[in-house]
Design a protein around this nucleic acid. Sequence first.
DNA 1: TAGATTGTTAATCGATTAACAATC
DNA 2: TAGATTGTTAATCGATTAACAATC
Lengths: 208, 208
Amino acid sequence: MKTYSKNQLQRYPIYLKYLKKLEAEGVKVVSSPMMAKELGYSEEQIRKDLQNVSDRPGRPHKGRDVHVLIETLESFLGYRTSTKAVMIGAGHLGAALMNYPNFEEMGLSIVAAFDTDPAKIGAEVRGKAIYSMSDFETLWPHLDAEIAIICVPAEESQKVVDLAIKAGAKGIWNFAPNHINVPKSVSLVTTNLASSLAVLSHSLNVKK
Amino acid sequence: MKTYSKNQLQRYPIYLKYLKKLEAEGVKVVSSPMMAKELGYSEEQIRKDLQNVSDRPGRPHKGRDVHVLIETLESFLGYRTSTKAVMIGAGHLGAALMNYPNFEEMGLSIVAAFDTDPAKIGAEVRGKAIYSMSDFETLWPHLDAEIAIICVPAEESQKVVDLAIKAGAKGIWNFAPNHINVPKSVSLVTTNLASSLAVLSHSLNVKK
DNA sequence: TAGATTGTTAATCGATTAACAATC
DNA sequence: TAGATTGTTAATCGATTAACAATC
């Protein structure tokens, strides 16, 4: 079975975005040297990445068909099937993500939110209800969701993750800035803003 | 000179968060096997990471002083000095990040926002003004900022990044889901939600 | 055909992991 | 002292890069 490294997986959406731009500009065929130049990766890496998801070879002297490549990447990334997610924590960040227009085209549909703040419960974000966290276990089975997106403070993240997994969540997307533990059967991705900032600050300091 | 890999830099804020939790619980000393168990990294890796930032050795049989380690990490990460940033794009995500309470304690201060939407210009987020994008060049020198945070749609990201760099931005934190090009003298970090989602979706599919 | 680009195989590089002597 | 944990040095692993023959 083919395996994909984390770094590699992260590159595919960037390729896809670029290819869609090319398609919109009317470009029909793309080569890896061309992509390499524009995206800042090496051409060998791009070739290898594309070979890994594509079942048909590129054409020497020309490259690859842009449209076919877009379709390949979209289905590989799951953009053509819908996955349902639930937002836990409807604060600024949680609400902003519910309003993020790109998730739908990536096949991710946020169907509801949960919060403990009485002022928020009963309200809506983008037409999706905000429920009370205390109803989580009862409501989860009806929502048909696979993923829980965690936008609560660090102090509560492990607690709500445990709850979500107990209810049946198979994937956790954590935006809280701390480490959380999950069983092996559950997929976890953490988007840690503090980690990103650390990389940026360090790079700035090195250049000074 | 010491060098730090990107992965390594990303771990430091996670260590710090955990150590602060320990300190709040009254724990005085921590060992790498203890951290390894809790955070899911190997103890060798944690030892190496901590050795890399710390100028004083740990104590065999005991470990390291929690408080000293926190201070070391905070100054390494720049949490004890203030860096100013400007938000470009005051939509849902941009506004949410301006409201994110943790940046201040990480030494990042967002001093103003820019947008092209007439309905937003002149308003405020958390007491910070939203200016017109057309005033960007004029206002930048007065803001004393180093970093531009990019929260505009993919179609406009390269354009506003070019503007920011021309005005004098030394660091770019990009939240748009596409690749952007910057000169070598500028630091760039991209927080790409599409990339994170790709890793999560793939992991979910593999487990099915 | 010549030349550009592909796919494959080998070499390099860097990060993580393992091994182990030193130390409190 | 014995035992746990450290720091250092070597081995492993995996990803990226380089080299090159195959092909349109």
